[in-house]
């Protein structure tokens, strides 16, 4: 098991290097010059060229890529062209917000998705089934930015129940505040995350509920379920202990992949809700062609995604004892 984890972690290195090269290549292909964006419309061609020299953008691509790798090996992701700050500092400052949002959204998506899926499967063809599948259809087809604006319009503007934008205190900090007698800080953080998390979770919840429904329907027809009923076990126990656990496996792999989708969805959600995370930063960095920052963000996203999938693979072994890792 340990050897497996070490091997998977070592595999991260070539994967990360590959990501860097691919991103670098894409950035070479997309037109647009950070020096010109930075200096604005009023800058002369001479001034732009001067800045390109200073930023090393006039060097050949292999020199730039080599220099980037050389710095990366020393743990240096470079400096943002636009923000006058080390990329690692900027990314670290934003990472917490995105992970917080993605985790809360994932929990919401799992809770809602799994409950609806199980409910629909056990009452196949009933009104409950139809309603939850209509919900799933809506969730899959509604774009996150649209849902986000609608939620904001209803709960923040019309009803005024929740703040429209921004983030409260980070959760660990808010939790500590609540424990030391200031519960309003935690309430505030919770109020801020609710709308963006719901908007972000909707799509995943819908996909998970469909998947759980299908998987459950399949498992419920298996012989061992019939055997369980025949043994005289209660329906609830059969569904939760026997059927659900077996239906969980395909769901688990999807949940791992959904986390990637949630990080992607965070790009739009964070922009709508002014959530100060990596997603919002991505949009800004790309629109400014802030090359070192884009590289740093993509690399961070890739590593998180790989780590989450490693965790999912480890969980397989926990859920299904037939799977041996090694």
């Amino acid at each position: 098991m340990l050897a497996y984890i070490v091997r998977r972690l070592l595999l991260l290195i070539p994967m990360a290097a590959g990501m860097v090269v691919v991103t670098f290549g894409l950035l070479l292909l997309i037109p647009g010059d950070p020096a010109s964006v930075l200096l604005g419309q009023e800058a002369s061609a001479e001034a732009i060229n001067n800045l390109r020299n200073a930023l090393g953008l006039n060097d050949p691509w292999y020199v730039r890529l080599g220099a980037y790798f050389a710095r990366l090996l020393q743990g240096d992701m470079g400096r943002s062209i636009f923000q006058n700050q080390a990329v690692s500092e900027i990314v670290a400052g934003r990472l917490g917000a995105t992970i917080e949002l993605a985790v809360v959204a994932l929990i919401l998506a799992c809770l809602v998705g799994i409950s609806l899926g199980v409910l629909a499967a056990t009452r196949q063809g009933s009104i409950v089934d139809t309603v939850s599948m209509i919900f799933a259809q809506l969730g899959v087809s509604m774009p996150v930015y649209w849902l986000g604006l609608l939620l904001m319009l209803l709960f923040a503007v019309t009803l005024g129940w929740l703040p429209a934008i921004g983030r409260g205190a980070p959760f660990p900090e808010a939790l500590w505040a609540a424990l030391t007698g200031r519960p309003q800080v935690l309430i505030d953080s919770f109020a801020h995350i609710l709308l963006p998390a719901v908007a972000l979770a909707a799509n995943s919840a819908a996909i998970i509920s469909r998947l759980v429904r299908t998987a459950m329907l399949e498992v419920l027809r298996e012989d061992f379920v019939r055997t369980a009923y025949a043994k005289g076990l209660r329906r609830q126990r059969v569904i939760l202990r026997h059927a659900f656990r077996n239906a969980l496996l395909p769901v688990l792999s999807v949940v791992g992949l959904r986390f990637g989708a949630l990080l992607g969805g965070a790009v739009l959600t964070e922009t709508i809700f002014a959530w100060p995370g990596l997603g919002q930063l991505t949009i800004t960095a790309i629109s400014q062609r802030d090359l070192p920052l884009i590289q740093g963000i993509v690399l961070t996203f890739a590593i998180i995604f790989a780590l989450v999938n490693l965790v999912v693979d480890l969980l397989y072994a926990v859920v299904d004892p037939r799977i041996r890792l090694g």
Binding site: V157, G160, P163, A164, I165, G166, F273, A274, T284
Partner: peptide, 18 residues
Amino acid sequence: IKIIGDGSARAQAFEAGD
């Protein structure tokens, strides 16, 4: 000074009193 990239979201935040 609060930064909200999306114009409509900024207008809504203003209407919501944020």
